[in-house]
């Protein structure tokens, strides 16, 4: 017990020490830095709104990834799936008249689009033996090219010089903002994202398909011998993963921007990989993990503004060290638990 405490201490002090070194180097006190980080991401409603908006994107993507990771797969296509969902949702919203029927189509299109991408990855994996890292990476690029093409050649907004589409009809602005400030990005889909995480957790832990997914993730051969069709599980996992990423379109297009902008994503799909891994692929843990990364994202801007020395680049170093520190502490907790287990048996 004492030894574990002592090691936690070393890990924590080292982590804090590392942050302090950085902060001293930047002529700031570490306490001040943490303060700014938290203040500028959670303090005012407008800031909190952006943070929650980031977290929403991260939650949808990361939960999807977690499902796939638990099946033992490593697809990195969340970014492309998100973009494709957003693009198709916007395209459909622009092309259809604002009727109730169109509402349904608009809601569903993005989800279908992203799921198709996920199923393509599954097809390549199951029928062609192609590793999902490659196929999902290629699809990311292909989607980016397609989106560029669609926007610049067909859907470019006439009232703006940005590479973006026109604004979709207000009938399609389905998800109201959470805060009253105008232009506040956070919207009702934040709660949907939390729900999605809980649902994913429930699915993985308490349902049979979820159990099978995890079984395949733990050991393909054992699962196969128990009669689970690994192929079917892969299709399921990749499909769900892509579907969840697609919900990001509800957040981005229907809940906030109401148009497709090239470059809208702050690399949500890639950050989500880190979010999911830090949360150990547990959808419930993804909720705080997403918040953690969202705070880092939003706080980066704040650090740049509030300090003289800390710039956008320096923030990257701070983020890296913070994540490492968290990982080390997490690892220490694992070790302590394992030792406690060993001592009990």
């Amino acid at each position: 017990m004492k030894r574990a405490f002592y090691r936690y201490g070393i890990a924590a002090i080292t982590g804090i020490g590392a942050i302090s070194v950085l902060c001293l180097f930047a002529h700031e006190s570490p306490w001040h830095v943490v303060q700014i980080l938290l203040n500028t991401s959670l303090g005012e409603p407008e800031d909190l709104s952006v943070t929650l908006f980031y977290a929403t994107h991260l939650m949808f993507c990361a939960t999807g990834l977690a499902v796939a990771f638990q099946a033992g797969l490593f697809p990195i296509g969340a970014e492309g799936q998100l973009s494709f969902a957003c693009l198709t949702t916007t395209m459909v919203a622009i092309m259809l008249p604002p009727t109730y029927f169109s509402l349904v189509i608009v809601l569903v299109t993005g989800l279908l689009a992203s799921t198709v991408l996920g199923l393509i990855v599954a097809y390549f994996k199951c029928k062609k033996g192609a590793h999902e890292v490659i196929t999902s990476m290629m699809l990311n690029f292909i989607v980016a090219a397609f989106a560029n093409y669609m926007v610049s050649h067909h859907f470019q907004s006439h009232s703006s010089q940005d590479p973006e589409t026109a604004i979709i009809h207000s009938r399609f602005w389905l998800f109201p903002s959470i805060f009253h400030a105008e232009g506040s990005p956070a919207n009702v889909t934040f709660f949907l994202a939390v729900l999605a995480c809980v649902a994913a957790w429930y699915f993985l832990e308490k349902t049979r398909p979820g159990f099978e997914i995890r079984a395949v993730g733990k050991s393909k051969s054992v699962a196969q011998n128990s009669g689970i069709s690994v192929e079917r599980i892969y299709v399921l996992a990749l499909g769900i993963s892509a579907l969840l990423a697609g919900f990001g379109a509800w957040n981005q297009i229907l809940g906030y921007a109401h148009k497709y902008q090239i470059g809208f994503s702050a690399d949500y799909g890639f950050l989500a990989i880190a979010v999911a891994l830090v949360a150990r692929n547990n959808p419930l843990a993804i909720i705080p993990s997403s918040l953690f990364f969202a705070i880092l994202l939003k706080g980066a801007t704040g650090l740049d503004i509030e300090t003289d020395f800390i710039t956008r680049d320096f923030v990257k170093i701070i983020q890296a060290v913070l994540i490492l520190m968290f990982l080390v502490l997490q690892k220490q907790r694992d070790k302590s638990r394992a030792e406690a287990e060993a001592r009990r048996t």
């Binding site: 500028t40 702050a266 690399d267 801007t301 503004i305 956008r312």
Partner: peptide
């Protein structure tokens, strides 16, 4: 002069507002 470099498309508005508030 205080200069800041944007990190992503969402950060512009936050930066503008933060400076205006100051």
């Amino acid at each position: 002069v205080k200069y800041i470099e944007a990190t992503d498309i969402m950060s512009f508005e936050s930066m503008q507002r933060a400076l205006a508030k100051k």
